[in-house]
């Protein structure tokens, strides 16, 4: 059953130096599954995720032949409709937690804000929920973190706070943009377990944007490989490490390996044909 369906999505920025096409005709369907999006920097992964929430700021423009979430037409939805969807039914973990958290507001207050306003929870309820959410993402000392300002957290803690914040309202679709890039492997595994559990037991849909190919291969069901705003390859995650496309292979070859040679790592040779 499809949760989200995107047909021929295009994102264009009308800049002073001419239009920049960040996403050029991306189509995919998402069920209650884990869909990975990989690709090099600037390939349009983030813009694809943001376009689903219609969160592209001017001078950016979104066009699509169709974009529906559980049958609701996202392209035609009004701003109030979208606001009702965002955060509550479709949540997005932003790439840069340091930018997305308010630097002068305590973490606890930011976590509780949504609960208090949207769900009209009492202070004590909201606090208990927020602490539980922090514990779920393996934060060691949730009581202290509630009282901390974002700059007092480590990089990985900030990232986990963002994940906790997005999971509190129990969304049906989670778009996670590089959610675990600052986490060590053991904590990362725990966070992925939570996401996995939500997909399996609650039927949440997950779009998992990442540049860590090995992680995506291990964790996701299906993968889209993006290059210059286009999907160059779509494949089952378990086949990612044996991908045929030279671009995907090139990306894989760049990775260092434990016990591998310490010589220079191979660079990616880009081919103009891939972008067509």
């Amino acid at each position: 059953m499809t949760l989200l369906s995107v047909k021929n999505l295009r994102v264009t920025f009308d800049t002073e130096t001419g239009p920049v096409q960040a996403v050029r005709g991306v189509s995919f369907d998402l069920g209650r599954e884990r869909l990975g999006i990989v690709g090099e920097s600037g390939s349009g992964k983030t813009m694809t995720g943001r376009a689903v929430l219609r969160l592209i700021r001017a001078p950016g423009r979104i066009e699509a032949d169709a974009m529906t979430f559980e049958g609701q037409d996202l392209m035609a939805a009004s701003e109030p409709d979208l606001r009702a969807l965002r955060g509550r039914r479709i949540a997005m973990v932003m790439q840069d937690p340091k930018f997305s958290l308010n630097p002068v507001m305590k973490v606890g207050a930011q976590l509780m804000e949504g609960l208090r306003q949207r769900d009209h929870a009492t202070r004590a309820e909201a606090r208990a929920k927020a602490i539980a959410a922090l514990e779920a993402v393996q934060i060691r000392d949730p009581e202290r973190v509630m009282e901390a300002y974002p700059h007092e957290l480590s990089g990985g803690m900030g990232q986990r706070v963002m994940i906790a914040m997005m999971l509190i309202p129990d969304p049906d679709l989670l778009i996670a943009d590089e959610p675990t890039s600052a986490l060590d492997v053991t904590v990362q595994a725990e966070v992925l377990n939570i996401l996995d559990d939500l997909v399996k037991t609650r039927g949440m849909g997950l779009i998992f944007i990442s540049h860590d190919l090995r992680l995506v291969a291990r964790f996701c069901d299906r993968v889209l490989v993006m290059y210059k705003g286009k999907i160059v390859e779509e494949l089952a995650a378990k086949d990612l490490l044996q991908a045929k496309h030279p671009y995907t292979q090139g990306l894989l070859n760049c990775l260092p390996r434990i016990g591998g040679s310490r010589g220079a790592l191979p660079a990616l040779d880009r081919n103009a044909d891939w972008a067509r």
């Binding site: 090099e40 920097s41 540049h211 220079a264 660079a267 990616l268």
Partner: peptide
């Protein structure tokens, strides 16, 4: 950084 840029930076 993504894989290709990581390789460049490490090199």
């Amino acid at each position: 950084l993504d894989a290709s840029v990581q390789a460049e930076t490490l090199n």
